[in-house]
Simulated assay, not measured.
Amino acid sequence: MPRESYQEQLEAMQEDVLYMSEVVIDRLRLALEAMEQKDGEAAKEIIAGDDEINDLYLDLEQDCIDLLALQQPVAGDLRLIASSFKIITDLERVGDLAVNLGEYTLDSQQDMFPEVDINAIGDHTLDMLEDAMGAYEARDPESCYDIAERDEDLDGLCAEASQTVVRDLIETELDPDDSDEQVEALMQDVSRMLLTVRDLERVGDHAVNIAARTLYMVENDEELIY
């Protein structure tokens, strides 16, 4: 295959990775909005849209395999393909987490924990994910380090939110007249809130993974991977 065609394939692969990231980030943003607005229809659309993300992932996975098998890339090209393969895996998992948020929206029973600012946590994760993909596109190693540092702030926000939920649960006085079903609904809502916080923290972890693979791709530096 002509070298020009090979370079075009590499560029097309990168463009497709960026397109997949746009789809995933949009789904995550919509999932957060659906949760805030208690929009069940939007939540159902997010859940149904997961097939599109899975298809994008499988197509890109095959593109990466074909480039590795047919072109036998070395040095920078090999790192580009290997890192892109890892990055689309992280993006696919973020898509799954967006589906989780949609399911939590559909299953929620009542308004709880107004002092927990899920929107602030969600905005933080979105910014990290967008910036991680921006670093991949621009091949910007400095941004990779910045994203890794910001993950500590996200971890702090998530830990504080989880502690608030647990504290409020401990302090909640149940009405003796509450039925078993009411108590069960309360516990399920507590569980969903904790899972929401956990899943958003995981989005941040995936953003760091993307930054780590980008740093490796650009500078052959494995520092953030471990």
Rank of each mutant, 00 (worst) to 15 (best):
M1P: 10
S5I: 15
E8N: 13
E8P: 00
Q9A: 08
L10V: 07
E11D: 12
A12D: 09
A12K: 13
A12N: 12
M13C: 14
Q14S: 15
Q14L: 09
E15S: 14
Y19V: 08
Y19K: 12
M20E: 01
S21V: 00
V23E: 12
L28W: 09
L28M: 12
R29P: 00
R29V: 06
L30R: 15
A34S: 13
A34Q: 09
E36D: 13
E36L: 13
Q37E: 14
K38V: 11
D39F: 07
G40V: 02
I46P: 03
I46D: 03
I47H: 10
D51W: 05
N54V: 06
D55F: 09
L56D: 03
Y57P: 01
D59T: 12
L60G: 05
D63Y: 02
L67T: 03
L70T: 10
Q72C: 06
Q72S: 14
P73T: 08
V74T: 15
V74P: 01
V74R: 06
D77A: 08
L80I: 04
I81K: 07
S84V: 05
S84K: 05
T89G: 15
E92F: 04
V94P: 00
D96E: 06
L97P: 02
L97N: 03
V99M: 06
G102S: 01
L106I: 14
L106A: 04
Q109N: 11
Q110D: 14
D111I: 07
F113P: 08
V116P: 02
V116T: 03
V116D: 00
I118H: 05
N119T: 12
A120M: 10
I121Y: 06
I121H: 04
I121D: 07
G122E: 09
T125C: 14
T125V: 15
D127H: 13
M128Y: 02
E130L: 07
M133K: 09
G134V: 03
A135Q: 09
R139G: 10
D146I: 10
I147L: 15
A148C: 08
E149S: 06
D151C: 02
E152W: 06
L154A: 14
C158V: 13
E160M: 08
E160G: 12
Q163C: 07
Q163A: 11
T164W: 00
T164E: 11
V166W: 00
R167H: 10
L169D: 01
E171V: 02
T172Y: 13
D177Y: 04
S179M: 07
D180C: 10
E181L: 10
V183N: 09
E184G: 03
L186S: 09
M187T: 06
Q188N: 11
D189M: 07
S191I: 03
S191G: 10
R192F: 02
M193N: 08
L195V: 00
D199M: 02
L200H: 04
E201N: 06
R202I: 01
N209V: 05
I210A: 04
I210G: 02
A211Y: 00
L215W: 00
L215A: 01
E223K: 10
L224N: 05
I225A: 08
Y226C: 07
